[in-house]
Design a protein around this nucleic acid. Structure first.
Lengths: 112, 112
DNA sequence: TTAACCTACTTAGCATAACAAAGTAGTTGC
DNA sequence: GCAACTACTTTGTTATGCTAAGTAGGTTAA
């Protein structure tokens, strides 16, 4: 990412957003993020997020052998995590609206 | 703000966005931010942003007596700052699109 | 067989930036 | 005098993304 600070807070919400669509593991999340446009996501960035979410009880973990590599840690969302996700969604939307209020020059709509 | 981390990176861009509309000072920027929806912005958050932007050469500073209080520091945007602002705008738009890619459930549009 | 290259997770140390809390000061009005 | 508003400063704390390195299992081809 060009502006690393912009990612703060958004990353955790996005990871929750991916996991809640179905059980998945770190390496796969990484590729989903990249496909969504988050380029050059570092592994050292993502894995600590997963550990953090796990500690907070927002996701649950299950280990399973991979057919083509070392063991995988599969994550699924918890009720607590779903709640946290909805909260993030609300906050993010508010942030975008607020920012639009300020950046918008002609009051016509969204960015250029 | 509820989710303080979300502000990171956005704040600086917003402040630039406000200053580029016309010379202004900290206390006034604070009220514009609040009017735009950024509630409870702490002064201890904003003023360091201004100092930072000034150090980077993104804004220029001029002191002037206030008609009803201590001295004001008026800021205006520089060419360097305008460049930085356009960069932020681009990055923020990209971030919103990427996040939308992930959070969007029905592919219909933006959030609920 | 060994080197290269995927897959997959871990960890240590650093930098950034928002916040809380407190302080300093000028002005106005009770 | 003192409260309330204006206006800027500073110190210390915390969260979190990044770099850079490491560990390990599997496959493929020189």
């Amino acid at each position: 990412m060009e502006d690393t600070q912009l990612l703060k807070g958004v990353l955790e919400g996005c990871v929750l957003g991916i996991i809640r669509k179905g059980e998945t593991y770190g390496y796969e999340i990484l590729s989903v993020m990249e496909a969504a446009g988050f380029e050059n996501m570092a592994e050292g960035t993502l894995y600590p997020v997963l550990t953090r979410l796990d500690k907070k009880g927002a996701i649950a973990c299950r280990k399973e052998k991979s057919p083509l590599g070392p063991i995988r840690k599969y994550y699924s969302i918890t009720a607590e995590g779903e709640e946290r996700y909805q909260e993030f969604r609300k906050n993010f939307k508010q942030l975008v609206l607020n920012t639009e209020n300020i950046l918008d020059e002609n009051g016509k709509g969204w960015l250029i």
